[in-house]
Amino acid sequence: MLENMKDALPYFLSYLPDGLQFALSNYWRVNGMHTEEIRMRSEQPIELIAHHVSGFLTRSGKLSLDTHEGLVIRREELRAFLAKMVDFSLYTLEEELRRGYITIAGGHRVGLAGQAVLRNGKVDHLKAISSLNIRLARARLGVGEAFLPYIWYKTRVAQTLIVSPPRAGKTTLLRDLVRILSKGERRFDIPPQRISLIDERSEIAACVDGVPTLDVGPRTDVLDACPKVEGMMMAIRSLGPDVVAVDELGGAEDMEAVDAARRSGVSVLATIHGASLDEVMRRHHVSRLLESGAFERILIFSRRRGPLTLEAIYTLGKDGAMIKAHLKASETGLVGDRR
């Protein structure tokens, strides 16, 4: 499996003060590949979260559970770091400050916490940012290959929903599936597909000035920072895609847009937060969409044995019910028990 980051310290960490940067570099040499999150809180030690381990960064670049050993990031240092990450232009990110996260070059998502400013009783934006949660984006080339037989249906991509809890790899999988489908895959007789990628949070293709910095394939058109609902409609109207790929479906409007897309003959490849089909079905607008037969395949993932642990696959039965399938990638038939 190829990784796009190798052992290099992500470029943006060079914006940290020298002492913190030195400790992080030491840590990165050994554990960089496994690091998933970097959490920084004003006047608190920096916390690093890897696949199986988490702790506070020490001066020597190791992890410790003792807060006293952790390297503290000062309030001014954190603000200066954030300012540099956003090119000294935090004020241009109003929508992001309202939503509570920004996406920086490379597709890394930075969750924010600070003082909420209210307008008409609702959060207008955050100011005086005091915590950053940096979720590192990684393009894991090839992770999608194993799942191609599940999503390819006769001559087209099946209407597919990828379900997993946070940090289980659904965005990584979606990115790789888009890349593979865009190129086409001879081994599975999949011809190249024209794909419209609606990248609302700029973390799938990690566009800089509209140009993807992560590989999403040669036949992929990216609608960067575009709201999902409008993006799907724009893509169908003007880009003529075979597949529309969209990350993290949420509200009822998203479901309506998915329904409209599939009715127009386009395959939808989407992800949604959830731990199981039952949990997803508890959301009224999602269950309504699923019961209407909008998705032909549902892939459920967890982190039980690391990111992208496949827990279950559901396929659409003839009567419109979702059937839990017991199949391996190499298998062709679907054998299942009706739910």
Partner: peptide, 11 residues
């Protein structure tokens, strides 16, 4: 010290 670190009305 603060330019570029706040929302536009604070700036």
């Amino acid at each position: 010290r603060s330019l570029g670190q706040y929302d536009r009305f604070s700036e």
